[in-house]
């Protein structure tokens, strides 16, 4: 691809076609995620929306952020961060779910009304 150009010796140059392809996919998925909210899927809606966001995010990370061609270690680094966030959110969710029953309903004396 970059054979015709004076590309750098130590990094990968992403072809324009790939960039445009990913761009198209992102645009399409954005419109899709917008459209899907007009269909009532019940509790599934949020997971569909998050699933689409995950696909979009993966595309951005792999192509726009060069993860596909870079050292795999960067992907490991990113995944470890996500794992960390997952642990944090997971435990906070698990715990707060457990003690909901102890809460005084709608306690918010600082809020008038």
């Amino acid at each position: 691809m970059s054979k015709h150009h004076e590309g750098p010796t130590y990094a990968h140059v992403v072809p324009v076609r790939t960039l445009l392809g990913v761009f198209g996919a992102l645009m399409f998925l954005t419109i899709l995620t917008y459209a899907v909210t007009y269909v009532d899927l019940g509790a599934l809606n949020i997971w569909v929306a998050l699933g689409i966001a995950l696909v979009k995010g993966t595309l951005v990370a792999l192509v726009f952020m060069h993860l596909l061609w870079d050292k795999k270690f960067y992907a490991v680094v990113l995944m470890s961060a996500l794992l960390c966030v997952m642990i944090f959110i997971g435990i906070a969710l698990l715990d707060s779910g457990q003690y909901q029953a102890d809460l005084i309903p709608d306690f918010a004396p600082g809020i008038v009304q």
């Binding site: 906070a92 715990d95 707060s96 003690y99 709608d106 918010a108 004396p109 809020i111």
Partner: peptide
């Protein structure tokens, strides 16, 4: 908590 928040969080 005065605003409905969660101090344990």
């Amino acid at each position: 908590p005065a605003l409905g928040g969660d101090p344990v969080l």
